[in-house]
């Protein structure tokens, strides 16, 4: 950790204004830190999906020119394993974080936060993690327990 008092650089950084910190920080953590206000239901998400996602990811997330987002038929220990959001992803918040920053690939950043909540809900539903009448928001999303939540071994702290 750097503790020196005297700057080792020329000190040209400028204080970042609060609005910038708020607008630029898009990171959503597993505990929900970073999630915005807003909400969306599975049903609204289906509408978003049909309008903005289906062209690449296929009907019901079964895959198209881009990868499948649901529809695992077997498990991670089969050969070959079947990795999807439902079988593999450890946190539901990741789905919000990624979709909001990167999707739809053809028009990233174009969805409202409500739309991102909705399509996140829809994808969780397609992966049989939540029900058809559920919705997602800043409280519910971090509370979702993903099937593969405990599926990861931290290789940095225990190098093999």
């Amino acid at each position: 950790m750097v503790v020196a008092d005297e700057l080792i650089g020329p000190g040209l950084g400028l204080q970042a204004p609060p609005e910038m910190l708020k607008q630029w920080n898009r990171d959503v953590f597993p505990d929900g830190t970073g999630l915005p206000l807003g909400r969306g239901t599975v049903r609204e998400g289906e509408t978003v999906y049909r309008a903005h996602c289906i062209g690449c990811h296929g009907s019901e997330g079964r895959g198209g020119s881009a990868e499948e987002l649901a529809g695992a038929e077997h498990s991670l220990i089969d050969d070959p394993p079947d990795k999807t959001i439902g079988t593999y992803w450890p946190y539901a918040t990741t789905l919000f974080d990624f979709t909001r920053r990167s999707m739809p690939l053809s028009n990233p950043g174009s969805l409202t936060d409500d739309q991102v909540y909705a399509v996140t809900a829809y994808l969780l539903y397609l992966n049989r993690i939540i029900g058809p009448d559920d919705e997602m928001n800043a409280q519910l999303l971090p509370a979702v327990v993903m099937p593969n939540q405990d599926g990861f071994i931290d290789n940095y702290r225990r190098d093999d």
Binding site: E19, M20, Q23, W24, L105, S106, N107, P108, G109, S110
Partner: peptide, 13 residues
């Protein structure tokens, strides 16, 4: 002027 929104190059492939 620095942008608060996503800059144009982050909004299209």
């Amino acid at each position: 002027t620095a942008e608060l929104d996503r800059e144009s190059w982050t909004k299209q492939p």
